[in-house]
Amino acid sequence: MPVEIHISRAGPYDATAMAAIHRTCFAKPWDAAAMAQFLASPDVLCLMGSVADSSGGIAGGMLIARRAADEAELLTLAVAPACRNAGLGTALLKSAMNLLREAGAVRLFLEVEEGNEAALRLYRSLGGEPVGRRPGYYEGRADAAIFSLALSPPAADDGACQQEARPSIHAQGRDERKPA
Rank of each mutant, 00 (worst) to 15 (best):
A91I: 13
N85K: 15
R67T: 08
G61M: 04
L75V: 15
G89T: 09
A86V: 15
T90C: 08
D53S: 14
S54K: 13
A68R: 15
G89N: 04
P42I: 07
L75I: 14
R67F: 05
G57K: 14
L75A: 09
L39S: 12
S41N: 08
L88Q: 06
S55W: 01
L88V: 06
G87N: 10
E73N: 12
A68C: 09
L92H: 11
L77V: 13
G61Q: 08
S41A: 15
L45K: 15
T76E: 01
G56L: 12
A32G: 00
L92T: 08
P81S: 11
N85W: 10
A32E: 13
A65P: 03
A78N: 03
A40M: 03
G49N: 12
V51S: 09
S54R: 15
D53T: 13
A32H: 03
M35S: 03
S50M: 11
A52W: 02
A78R: 01
A36D: 01
L45E: 06
T90Q: 14
C83L: 02
A80G: 02
E71P: 04
R84D: 03
A69P: 00
R84L: 05
L88E: 05
S50P: 00
P81C: 08
M35R: 03
S41F: 03
G57H: 12
L77R: 00
A34G: 01
A82D: 13
C83P: 04
D43P: 01
A80E: 06
G89H: 02
P29R: 06
E71R: 14
D43S: 15
L75P: 02
